[in-house]
């Protein structure tokens, strides 16, 4: 009996979630963290050529109000720190879009001493956009895809971050708070 009530409640909650998710996917406030060259692709998406506002996506100035964190391009060791700080300031639910090859595997900077290769080791990324640079169309299609995922309740990056918080913190700490050199050869 109790089980049944519990199950019913879960079902109801999920129905409630589904309704809310509809509103969430139709209204996304975006904080663009313009680290690299990718920022130049944003104006065409926002202005009259592609106009992302028709999908309910609007730019916002502060992380407190944002739903999406758009990381446009590579993140260096120094920027990743700001990125994590910003991401943690955003209230739930929140999603991260990795933009361009650099966020996937470092792109052309893959063997550089300061460019992060895999961004999703440090913050949970819901969707990557491949390309160097990705064209505005692909960004828009990624947005649509993200909306679809949110609508279905699949985009759960923020919950992944909560569940695997220790793992993410460990990776972040390894990079940012290291005490020994990575390579032999040691101190300068």
């Amino acid at each position: 009996m109790l089980d049944k009530i519990q199950k019913d409640r879960e079902k109801r909650q999920s129905a409630w979630e589904a309704v809310i998710n509809y509103f969430r996917k139709r209204s996304l406030y975006m904080l663009h963290y313009c680290t690299g060259c990718g920022a130049i692709e944003l104006p065409p998406i926002m202005t009259s050529r592609w106009d992302m506002e028709r999908f309910g996506i609007a730019p916002m100035a502060t992380p407190r109000q944002a739903d999406i964190l758009l990381v446009t391009g590579y993140a260096s060791q120094k920027t990743i720190k700001r990125l994590i700080y910003t991401y943690e300031q955003m209230p739930n639910p929140k999603w991260v879009l990795g933009f361009g090859s650099c966020t996937i595997n470092g792109g052309i900077y893959w063997d550089s001493y300061n460019v992060i290769n895999k961004l999703d080791r440090y913050i949970p990324i819901d969707l990557f956009i491949s390309g160097c640079m990705p064209r505005p169309q692909s960004i828009l299609s990624a947005m649509k895809k993200l909306q679809e995922m949110i609508g279905k309740g699949e985009a759960k990056g923020y919950e992944r971050y909560k569940q695997n918080y220790e793992w993410y913190k460990k990776n972040q700490r390894k990079l940012l708070e290291r005490e020994t050199p990575f390579l032999d050869g040691g101190e300068k």
């Binding site: 700001r82 990125l83 700080y85 910003t86 300031q89």
Partner: peptide, 9 residues
């Protein structure tokens, strides 16, 4: 102090 600071701690 956990406040919007343009990403800076």
């Amino acid at each position: 102090m956990d406040n919007y600071t343009a990403g800076e701690d």
